[in-house]
């Protein structure tokens, strides 16, 4: 498929000189690292523990950093540290919910149509706490993909590297995450 080829090679990557120090290359991504740790651990103290451990690991592994996107490099370490802390298999293919296989590319649109989209109310209300709850309620493999794309602004290729799955899986997870978020928002709005 043509878009696959596109997805594999695009987005210019900033080449980082190996001579640039850790603090110039990696430390600017500390906020990104905290953001991912916070969304995956869901608890502020646990997130800080993971962040501390991940930053120490990053410092240790930094001599092996060979350029590329430093944010993606650091976030992969954060993600691995999270999975260690949660005792999860880093490369697990998650058991899909009923009716969905992990690599299902044929994706249903089970969405409210534009005319009756109750989640619009939630968008307008800007109710951060409820949004946080909705996102926190997503399974971790959907949550991490969504956060890496929408908050960390990584490319599909970088997300695939961080989460250790093929790009096709990134695309279907991202779609399912967005769909699940909209559905959860709509359900919550209706029940109010």
């Amino acid at each position: 498929m043509q878009h696959r080829r596109r997805a594999f090679g695009l987005r210019s990557e900033v080449p980082a000189s190996p001579r640039e120090p850790f603090e110039a290359v990696i430390l600017p991504e500390l906020d990104a690292a905290h953001n991912l740790a916070r969304w995956l651990m869901r608890d502020a103290n646990a997130a800080e523990d993971v962040l501390q451990e991940a930053m120490l690991r990053a410092l240790t592994y930094f001599p092996s950093f060979r350029g590329g996107n430093p944010r993606a490099w650091l976030l992969q370490i954060v993600r691995n540290t999270v999975y260690d802390a949660l005792k999860l298999d880093r490369a697990a293919q998650f058991v899909p919910l009923a009716g969905w296989s992990e690599d299902d590319d044929i994706v249903g649109i089970d969405l409210p149509s534009g005319e009756d989209d109750p989640e619009t109310t939630l968008i307008k209300s800007r109710d951060l706490r409820r949004l946080q709850e909705l996102i926190s309620g997503l399974p971790i493999e959907l949550r991490e993909t969504l956060v890496l794309r929408e908050l960390e602004e990584l490319s599909y290729k970088d997300i695939a590297e961080v989460t250790q799955v093929p790009i096709g899986t990134v695309m279907s997870r991202l779609w399912r995450a967005r769909r699940a978020l909209l559905q959860a928002a709509a359900t919550q709005e209706r029940s109010r």
Binding site: H34, L131, L151, R178
Partner: peptide, 16 residues
């Protein structure tokens, strides 16, 4: 739908 999903996540959710 994609546009609405992005609006939901637009602003305030980033955790520096």
């Amino acid at each position: 739908a994609l546009q609405r999903a992005r609006l939901l996540m637009d602003g305030g959710l980033y955790e520096p």
